[in-house]
Amino acid sequence: MDIGFVLQQIINGFSLGSMYALIAIGYTLVYGVLRLINFAHGDIMMVGAFLTFILLGIFTGWKFQHINMPLFFTAAGIAIILTSIVGILTYVIAYKPLLDKGAPKISLLITAIGISFFLESLFNVIANQYLGGTYQAFYFPKWFSKIIHIGDITIPILTIIVPILTILLLLLVLFILYKTKVGIAIRALAFDISTVKLMGANSNFIIAFVFALGSALAAIGGIAYAMAYPSIDPYMGMLVGLKAFAAAVVGGIGSVTGAVIGGFILGFVEVAIPGFFPELGGWKDAFAFILLIFVLLFKPTGIMGIDFERQRF
Protein backbone atom coordinates (compact mmCIF):
# COMPACT_ATOMS: atom_id res chain seq x y z
CA MET A 1 0.00 0.00 0.00
CA ASP A 2 1.79 3.11 -1.18
CA ILE A 3 1.42 6.62 0.14
CA GLY A 4 -0.15 7.87 -3.08
CA PHE A 5 -3.00 5.40 -2.78
CA VAL A 6 -3.66 6.40 0.80
CA LEU A 7 -3.58 10.06 -0.13
CA GLN A 8 -6.05 9.44 -2.91
CA GLN A 9 -8.46 7.71 -0.53
CA ILE A 10 -8.17 10.60 1.89
CA ILE A 11 -9.02 13.10 -0.83
CA ASN A 12 -11.98 11.01 -1.97
CA GLY A 13 -13.18 10.70 1.61
CA PHE A 14 -12.96 14.45 2.11
CA SER A 15 -14.94 15.06 -1.03
CA LEU A 16 -17.77 12.62 -0.26
CA GLY A 17 -17.76 13.72 3.38
CA SER A 18 -18.23 17.37 2.43
CA MET A 19 -21.43 16.55 0.57
CA TYR A 20 -22.78 14.75 3.63
CA ALA A 21 -21.60 17.65 5.79
CA LEU A 22 -23.47 20.24 3.72
CA ILE A 23 -26.70 18.30 4.16
CA ALA A 24 -26.00 17.45 7.80
CA ILE A 25 -25.80 21.16 8.72
CA GLY A 26 -29.45 21.54 7.75
CA TYR A 27 -30.49 18.61 9.94
CA THR A 28 -28.59 20.03 12.86
CA LEU A 29 -29.90 23.60 12.53
CA VAL A 30 -33.55 22.52 12.34
CA TYR A 31 -33.08 20.06 15.17
CA GLY A 32 -31.43 22.68 17.31
CA VAL A 33 -34.32 25.09 16.90
CA LEU A 34 -37.38 22.87 16.71
CA ARG A 35 -36.10 19.54 18.14
CA LEU A 36 -37.42 18.12 14.89
CA ILE A 37 -35.60 15.56 12.80
CA ASN A 38 -36.61 16.85 9.41
CA PHE A 39 -36.58 13.63 7.40
CA ALA A 40 -37.60 15.52 4.28
CA HIS A 41 -34.20 17.21 4.30
CA GLY A 42 -32.56 14.55 2.12
CA ASP A 43 -35.23 15.14 -0.49
CA ILE A 44 -34.58 18.87 -0.36
CA MET A 45 -31.12 18.02 -1.62
CA MET A 46 -32.72 16.11 -4.52
CA VAL A 47 -34.94 19.13 -5.24
CA GLY A 48 -31.82 21.32 -5.51
CA ALA A 49 -30.17 18.98 -8.01
CA PHE A 50 -33.36 18.52 -10.03
CA LEU A 51 -34.16 22.22 -10.22
CA THR A 52 -30.62 22.93 -11.46
CA PHE A 53 -31.12 20.24 -14.10
CA ILE A 54 -34.50 21.65 -15.15
CA LEU A 55 -33.20 25.24 -15.31
CA LEU A 56 -30.22 24.15 -17.40
CA GLY A 57 -32.66 22.35 -19.65
CA ILE A 58 -34.76 25.48 -20.08
CA PHE A 59 -31.67 27.65 -20.71
CA THR A 60 -30.28 25.31 -23.36
CA GLY A 61 -33.59 24.33 -24.97
CA TRP A 62 -33.26 20.80 -23.50
CA LYS A 63 -30.15 20.18 -25.59
CA PHE A 64 -27.69 20.59 -22.71
CA GLN A 65 -24.98 21.78 -25.05
CA HIS A 66 -22.43 24.53 -24.51
CA ILE A 67 -22.99 24.81 -20.81
CA ASN A 68 -20.48 27.41 -19.70
CA MET A 69 -19.68 28.71 -16.23
CA PRO A 70 -21.97 31.77 -16.15
CA LEU A 71 -24.90 29.70 -17.43
CA PHE A 72 -24.27 26.93 -14.92
CA PHE A 73 -23.87 29.26 -11.98
CA THR A 74 -27.00 31.21 -12.93
CA ALA A 75 -28.98 27.96 -13.04
CA ALA A 76 -27.43 26.69 -9.81
CA GLY A 77 -27.98 30.07 -8.11
CA ILE A 78 -31.65 30.24 -9.04
CA ALA A 79 -32.08 26.60 -8.08
CA ILE A 80 -30.55 27.22 -4.66
CA ILE A 81 -32.91 30.17 -4.06
CA LEU A 82 -35.91 28.16 -5.23
CA THR A 83 -34.88 25.25 -3.01
CA SER A 84 -34.73 27.61 -0.02
CA ILE A 85 -38.27 28.67 -0.86
CA VAL A 86 -39.32 25.01 -1.01
CA GLY A 87 -37.70 24.59 2.41
CA ILE A 88 -39.63 27.55 3.81
CA LEU A 89 -42.84 26.24 2.27
CA THR A 90 -42.44 22.85 3.94
CA TYR A 91 -42.19 24.68 7.24
CA VAL A 92 -45.10 27.04 6.61
CA ILE A 93 -47.44 24.44 5.14
CA ALA A 94 -46.55 21.29 7.04
CA TYR A 95 -44.83 22.04 10.32
CA LYS A 96 -46.05 25.43 11.45
CA PRO A 97 -49.75 24.55 11.73
CA LEU A 98 -48.80 21.55 13.87
CA LEU A 99 -46.47 23.59 16.06
CA ASP A 100 -49.13 26.26 16.53
CA LYS A 101 -51.58 23.65 17.71
CA GLY A 102 -49.02 22.23 20.11
CA ALA A 103 -48.87 18.84 18.45
CA PRO A 104 -46.48 16.30 19.98
CA LYS A 105 -43.01 16.01 18.43
CA ILE A 106 -43.81 12.57 17.04
CA SER A 107 -46.57 14.05 14.84
CA LEU A 108 -44.02 16.44 13.36
CA LEU A 109 -41.73 13.52 12.64
CA ILE A 110 -44.48 11.65 10.80
CA THR A 111 -45.29 14.82 8.87
CA ALA A 112 -41.63 15.06 7.87
CA ILE A 113 -41.76 11.52 6.48
CA GLY A 114 -44.93 12.47 4.63
CA ILE A 115 -43.26 15.52 3.08
CA SER A 116 -40.36 13.30 2.07
CA PHE A 117 -42.67 10.92 0.17
CA PHE A 118 -44.54 13.84 -1.30
CA LEU A 119 -41.41 15.44 -2.73
CA GLU A 120 -40.16 12.13 -4.11
CA SER A 121 -43.46 11.37 -5.79
CA LEU A 122 -43.86 14.91 -7.09
CA PHE A 123 -40.49 14.86 -8.80
CA ASN A 124 -41.10 11.35 -10.04
CA VAL A 125 -44.24 12.58 -11.78
CA ILE A 126 -42.39 15.60 -13.17
CA ALA A 127 -39.50 13.43 -14.36
CA ASN A 128 -41.73 10.85 -16.00
CA GLN A 129 -44.24 13.25 -17.49
CA TYR A 130 -42.01 16.04 -18.71
CA LEU A 131 -38.40 14.91 -18.68
CA GLY A 132 -38.86 11.49 -20.25
CA GLY A 133 -37.84 9.15 -17.47
CA THR A 134 -37.05 8.65 -13.80
CA TYR A 135 -33.29 8.79 -14.32
CA GLN A 136 -31.63 11.81 -15.84
CA ALA A 137 -28.02 12.54 -16.67
CA PHE A 138 -26.70 15.66 -14.96
CA TYR A 139 -24.80 18.13 -17.13
CA PHE A 140 -22.23 20.70 -16.01
CA PRO A 141 -19.30 22.65 -17.49
CA LYS A 142 -16.51 20.42 -18.75
CA TRP A 143 -13.98 22.20 -16.57
CA PHE A 144 -15.36 20.46 -13.47
CA SER A 145 -14.53 17.01 -14.83
CA LYS A 146 -10.86 17.93 -15.16
CA ILE A 147 -8.47 15.52 -13.55
CA ILE A 148 -5.15 16.54 -12.05
CA HIS A 149 -2.34 14.01 -12.15
CA ILE A 150 0.32 14.18 -9.46
CA GLY A 151 2.58 11.21 -9.92
CA ASP A 152 0.37 8.16 -9.51
CA ILE A 153 -2.50 10.00 -7.93
CA THR A 154 -5.41 11.16 -10.02
CA ILE A 155 -7.42 13.93 -8.41
CA PRO A 156 -10.68 14.99 -10.04
CA ILE A 157 -10.80 18.75 -9.62
CA LEU A 158 -14.25 18.45 -8.05
CA THR A 159 -12.84 16.54 -5.07
CA ILE A 160 -10.75 19.60 -4.18
CA ILE A 161 -13.40 22.24 -4.82
CA VAL A 162 -16.16 20.64 -2.79
CA PRO A 163 -14.30 20.34 0.55
CA ILE A 164 -13.01 23.93 0.24
CA LEU A 165 -16.51 25.12 -0.51
CA THR A 166 -17.82 23.19 2.49
CA ILE A 167 -15.30 24.74 4.87
CA LEU A 168 -16.11 28.23 3.54
CA LEU A 169 -19.83 27.60 3.98
CA LEU A 170 -19.25 26.28 7.49
CA LEU A 171 -17.41 29.49 8.36
CA LEU A 172 -20.28 31.47 6.84
CA VAL A 173 -22.85 29.59 8.92
CA LEU A 174 -20.78 30.07 12.08
CA PHE A 175 -20.49 33.77 11.24
CA ILE A 176 -24.23 34.06 10.81
CA LEU A 177 -24.88 32.21 14.06
CA TYR A 178 -22.44 34.12 16.21
CA LYS A 179 -21.97 37.52 14.64
CA THR A 180 -25.33 38.56 13.28
CA LYS A 181 -28.59 39.52 14.90
CA VAL A 182 -30.48 36.69 13.20
CA GLY A 183 -27.85 34.30 14.51
CA ILE A 184 -28.31 35.49 18.05
CA ALA A 185 -32.04 35.11 17.59
CA ILE A 186 -31.60 31.55 16.28
CA ARG A 187 -29.49 30.61 19.26
CA ALA A 188 -31.97 32.24 21.61
CA LEU A 189 -34.80 30.34 19.93
CA ALA A 190 -32.93 27.10 20.49
CA PHE A 191 -33.01 27.81 24.22
CA ASP A 192 -36.62 28.66 24.64
CA ILE A 193 -39.15 29.49 21.98
CA SER A 194 -41.74 31.04 24.30
CA THR A 195 -39.32 33.46 25.93
CA VAL A 196 -38.07 34.63 22.55
CA LYS A 197 -41.66 35.29 21.52
CA LEU A 198 -42.25 37.25 24.72
CA MET A 199 -39.24 39.41 23.88
CA GLY A 200 -41.04 40.50 20.75
CA ALA A 201 -38.83 38.70 18.26
CA ASN A 202 -40.53 37.31 15.18
CA SER A 203 -39.98 33.63 15.82
CA ASN A 204 -41.71 32.59 12.60
CA PHE A 205 -39.32 34.63 10.53
CA ILE A 206 -36.33 33.19 12.34
CA ILE A 207 -37.48 29.57 11.95
CA ALA A 208 -38.24 30.21 8.29
CA PHE A 209 -34.72 31.60 7.96
CA VAL A 210 -33.28 28.44 9.51
CA PHE A 211 -35.20 26.31 7.01
CA ALA A 212 -34.05 28.51 4.13
CA LEU A 213 -30.42 28.36 5.22
CA GLY A 214 -30.50 24.58 5.72
CA SER A 215 -32.24 24.03 2.38
CA ALA A 216 -29.77 26.25 0.51
CA LEU A 217 -26.87 24.23 1.92
CA ALA A 218 -28.64 20.98 1.04
CA ALA A 219 -29.17 22.27 -2.50
CA ILE A 220 -25.44 23.03 -2.81
CA GLY A 221 -24.69 19.55 -1.48
CA GLY A 222 -27.14 18.06 -3.96
CA ILE A 223 -25.61 19.87 -6.91
CA ALA A 224 -22.11 18.77 -5.84
CA TYR A 225 -23.35 15.19 -5.46
CA ALA A 226 -24.98 15.27 -8.90
CA MET A 227 -21.72 16.50 -10.41
CA ALA A 228 -19.71 13.77 -8.72
CA TYR A 229 -22.15 11.02 -9.76
CA PRO A 230 -23.85 12.50 -12.80
CA SER A 231 -27.13 10.63 -12.61
CA ILE A 232 -30.09 12.13 -10.78
CA ASP A 233 -33.40 10.55 -9.83
CA PRO A 234 -36.22 11.48 -7.46
CA TYR A 235 -35.03 8.94 -4.90
CA MET A 236 -31.41 10.04 -4.76
CA GLY A 237 -32.01 11.96 -1.53
CA MET A 238 -33.21 8.96 0.46
CA LEU A 239 -29.96 7.19 1.28
CA VAL A 240 -27.81 10.32 1.14
CA GLY A 241 -30.26 12.01 3.50
CA LEU A 242 -30.09 9.10 5.92
CA LYS A 243 -26.30 9.18 5.84
CA ALA A 244 -26.23 12.93 6.38
CA PHE A 245 -28.56 12.38 9.31
CA ALA A 246 -26.14 9.76 10.64
CA ALA A 247 -23.33 12.28 10.14
CA ALA A 248 -25.24 14.87 12.16
CA VAL A 249 -25.84 12.37 14.96
CA VAL A 250 -22.24 11.12 14.98
CA GLY A 251 -21.04 14.72 15.12
CA GLY A 252 -23.48 15.52 17.89
CA ILE A 253 -26.84 16.72 16.64
CA GLY A 254 -27.37 20.39 17.33
CA SER A 255 -23.73 21.26 16.68
CA VAL A 256 -22.89 22.76 13.29
CA THR A 257 -19.17 22.04 13.54
CA GLY A 258 -20.04 18.54 14.73
CA ALA A 259 -22.19 17.99 11.65
CA VAL A 260 -19.28 18.83 9.39
CA ILE A 261 -16.88 16.61 11.36
CA GLY A 262 -19.47 13.81 11.32
CA GLY A 263 -19.86 14.21 7.56
CA PHE A 264 -16.13 13.92 7.01
CA ILE A 265 -15.87 10.84 9.23
CA LEU A 266 -18.73 9.12 7.41
CA GLY A 267 -17.22 10.00 4.05
CA PHE A 268 -13.89 8.52 5.10
CA VAL A 269 -15.45 5.27 6.30
CA GLU A 270 -17.38 4.92 3.08
CA VAL A 271 -14.31 5.46 0.96
CA ALA A 272 -11.85 3.60 3.16
CA ILE A 273 -13.84 0.37 3.48
CA PRO A 274 -13.99 -0.38 -0.25
CA GLY A 275 -10.61 1.26 -0.83
CA PHE A 276 -8.61 -0.82 1.62
CA PHE A 277 -10.87 -3.90 1.76
CA PRO A 278 -12.26 -4.14 -1.80
CA GLU A 279 -14.06 -7.40 -1.00
CA LEU A 280 -16.29 -5.52 1.41
CA GLY A 281 -17.12 -2.88 -1.20
CA GLY A 282 -20.76 -3.86 -1.47
CA TRP A 283 -21.25 -3.51 2.30
CA LYS A 284 -20.10 0.11 2.57
CA ASP A 285 -23.54 1.40 3.52
CA ALA A 286 -23.77 -1.15 6.31
CA PHE A 287 -20.43 0.00 7.71
CA ALA A 288 -21.50 3.62 7.67
CA PHE A 289 -24.42 2.81 9.93
CA ILE A 290 -22.48 0.39 12.11
CA LEU A 291 -20.18 3.33 12.81
CA LEU A 292 -23.20 5.35 13.86
CA ILE A 293 -24.24 2.70 16.39
CA PHE A 294 -20.68 2.35 17.63
CA VAL A 295 -20.19 6.05 18.24
CA LEU A 296 -23.51 6.32 20.02
CA LEU A 297 -22.64 3.38 22.30
CA PHE A 298 -19.61 5.21 23.62
CA LYS A 299 -20.71 8.79 23.24
CA PRO A 300 -24.49 8.99 23.21
CA THR A 301 -24.47 12.72 22.46
CA GLY A 302 -22.07 12.42 19.52
CA ILE A 303 -18.54 13.69 19.08
CA MET A 304 -19.21 17.37 19.66
CA GLY A 305 -21.84 16.20 22.09
CA ILE A 306 -24.09 18.97 23.27
CA ASP A 307 -25.88 18.99 26.54
CA PHE A 308 -29.03 20.67 25.40
CA GLU A 309 -29.79 22.18 28.78
CA ARG A 310 -26.65 24.29 28.78
CA GLN A 311 -25.35 24.94 25.35
CA ARG A 312 -26.50 25.45 21.78
CA PHE A 313 -24.68 25.07 18.46
Binding site: N12, P274, G281
Partner: peptide, 17 residues
Protein backbone atom coordinates in the same frame (compact mmCIF):
# COMPACT_ATOMS: atom_id res chain seq x y z
CA UNK B 1 -17.63 -12.00 -8.27
CA UNK B 2 -18.26 -8.47 -7.07
CA UNK B 3 -21.53 -7.15 -5.83
CA UNK B 4 -23.32 -3.84 -5.73
CA UNK B 5 -26.63 -2.60 -4.31
CA UNK B 6 -29.64 -1.17 -6.13
CA UNK B 7 -29.29 2.61 -6.02
CA UNK B 8 -25.49 2.67 -5.72
CA UNK B 9 -23.81 5.47 -7.59
CA UNK B 10 -20.18 4.96 -6.69
CA UNK B 11 -18.60 1.86 -8.24
CA UNK B 12 -14.99 2.97 -7.95
CA UNK B 13 -14.19 0.21 -5.47
CA UNK B 14 -15.46 -2.47 -7.85
CA UNK B 15 -13.81 -0.79 -10.82
CA UNK B 16 -10.44 -0.66 -9.02
CA UNK B 17 -10.71 -4.40 -8.37
Amino acid sequence: TLFINTGDKDFNAQVAQ
